[in-house]
């Protein structure tokens, strides 16, 4: 694998995460529990879509095959996607959506913090813009997880269920492979495994405040960020997202 091939893979991983999560969050538009939350979730989704345009735009540039961010988003099949399984599983209830958001935001904010000092200026510039947005996402999702965890009996139960359901998808964020090794060597991105301690400290504090118990299991699903094995859910998501581009190839929108 050349450095640029590894870089392109890395950029797809960043951009596919924000693409798929942005899509999931946007599914809430018009259906949230209260207007203020509806508006806030849309802001998060908008930020993520904007970050997608930057990450996938750069991925296309690095690939050098003339592909735009839209080409990458709308014309690849499941096996080409490099997002974490965590972001593709369905929203579930509002609690699970916000728990997922919080787990992702925690990882995302730490990751972007490192990427701001990337040896690749283009990566550093995207990270600098995104990290401001993500700092707010984390503040908001963490507050909501704490509020619902430490809310009523029902909200506590639902949040614990959400955490139990999502926890097996957390480990994938910290798995390293040859793409990561190449990124570390080039000083472009940190080793995913090295982010775990900061993540655990952050999440332990948030879940503690939320009176929730982190499952005592190290098991982690994997296959999303390498593309080896996605969940069944991703194909359905793409079926919707890519419908127009697939049905009317070459049209301008």
């Amino acid at each position: 694998m050349t450095r640029d091939e590894a870089l392109a893979q890395f950029l797809l991983r960043m951009g596919d995460n924000t693409l798929i999560l942005g899509h999931r969050v946007s599914e809430w538009c018009g259906h949230a529990p209260v207007l203020e939350e509806d508006i806030a979730l849309a802001n998060t989704a908008l930020d993520l879509i904007g970050q997608t345009q930057m990450w996938l735009g750069l991925a296309g540039e690095v690939q050098g095959m003339g592909k735009s961010a839209d080409d990458l988003a709308f014309l690849r099949d499941v096996w080409d996607f490099r997002n974490l399984l965590l972001v593709e599983v369905p929203n579930g209830d509002f609690g699970r959506t916000l728990m997922r958001q919080c787990l992702f935001d925690a990882w995302h904010s730490i990751q972007l913090g490192h990427l701001m000092t990337s040896s690749d200026e283009r990566v550093a510039a995207i990270a600098a813009k995104a990290s401001k947005e993500v700092a707010y996402h984390l503040e908001r999702s963490a507050d909501t997880v704490v509020g619902l965890g430490d809310g009523t009996e029902e909200s506590h139960r639902r949040m614990q269920e959400a955490l139990d359901y999502l926890w097996p998808y957390v480990g994938e964020m910290f798995q390293s492979d040859e793409v990561d090794a190449e990124m570390v060597k080039a000083g472009i991105a940190p080793d995913p495994a090295s982010l775990r301690a900061d993540f655990d400290a952050l999440i332990t504090r948030i879940m503690g405040e939320a009176t929730l118990t982190i499952p005592d299991s190290a098991f982690g699903h994997k296959g999303g960020r390498t593309g080896k094995m996605h969940t069944e859910h991703l194909g359905h998501l793409l079926t919707q997202m890519q419908w127009l581009q697939r049905a009317y190839p070459g049209a301008k929108w």
Binding site: L19, H23, S26, E27, C29, G30, H31, L35, D38, I39, A42, N43, A45, L46, I49, G50, T52, Q53, L56, A69, D70, A73, F74, Q240, M241, W243, L244, Q245, A251, W253
Partner: peptide, 24 residues
């Protein structure tokens, strides 16, 4: 909102989402 998840480009998706958010 019925079309947010099917918008044909990233930009159209963002515009539509921002618009529906404004309605809220």
């Amino acid at each position: 909102g019925n079309w947010i998840t099917r918008a044909p480009t990233l930009e159209r998706k963002a515009i539509l989402l921002a618009k529906v958010q404004d309605e809220a």
